[in-house]
Amino acid sequence: MSAAPDHAPTIVRAGLRDRLAPHVPLLLIPVLIVLGFVSIGSPSSWLTLTVSGLAMGMMIFIMASGLTLVFGLMDVINFGHGAFVSVGAFVGITVLLALGGMTGSPSLALNMAALLLAVVAAMLATGIIGWGFEKVIVEPVYGAHLKQILVTMGGLIIVEELILVAWGPDEIFFTRPETLQGAFTFAGAAIERYRLVAVVFGLALFLAMRFVLRSTKIGLIVRAGVENGEMVQALGYRLRAVFIGVFIAGSALAGLGGVMWALYQEVITAHMGAGIMVLVFIVVIMGGLGSVEGCFIAALLVGLTQNYVAFLEPKLALISNIGLMVLILMWRPQGMMPVVKAK
């Protein structure tokens, strides 16, 4: 046995600034909420807008989380991700409409059972389509970004056209399940039930994803793969299989996000996925490509900013998120929580 070295290691406590630096993005959310409070003035309007912004952010996060992991793991830019949002929305809402008896009932249990069935159907459908999408469209273009953009965009158009074939060209309007309709009053503010449900559900999903990524072996493989896929393979793990799994899970999450977004808007169209992709890409870029935590924070910032600005200065709402992204990238060009990629 070799002797212990004479260069005894020591731990030097980092300065306050260095210790705080990784957590600064997290602090932006309370800072933005306080700024919103100061700017809006009315506590009830502020509370309504804050819940609305958080709900919107949570839904964008659900749709974006799969995309950021797919990019981080295999360097794949999937412009077709929006297709899964649309398909998820159409499948989920079709199931909900078919279960009209359950969704129209005032029973919370029946409403939730219908919603669960809709979500499972949507995630199954988008998971399966995601698997086919990866096999047919993404696999042949690994390592070629321009081709990835072109073929995944093509895939998006094909899926949208197939939705038109299956469901027709008209927008489909619907109402949420009975117990998710309406609002309740809290501290003088009207808070929509569904938005609160979306906040709680989104937060639970984020914590579950964080647990999987931080505390399980598969999570370790994914995080390591995002940083250095080659080394993960050299340790004996089949990264390709992991990637397919992540692609399927990401597609299913987009499908779930599609159902939630549809319930939020109460209308679905074939192009709704492509429409939301602008926000999804903003969130993925702002968070740092491959970072789930960064994606989560960015999604909440985008949701809150959009709602606050739309209230304060409606004309600026259209550019508020682009402006936010520009500011974030000027501060941290690699995104808020960049994943260090192996050279």
Binding site: L220, I221, R223, E227, N228, G236, V340, A342
Partner: peptide, 17 residues
């Protein structure tokens, strides 16, 4: 080929396939 974002323990856990 160190995974910088993982702890030393996580690097080792990953190595024991």
């Amino acid at each position: 080929g160190i995974f910088s974002d993982l702890t030393v323990e996580e690097n080792m856990r990953l190595a024991a396939a």
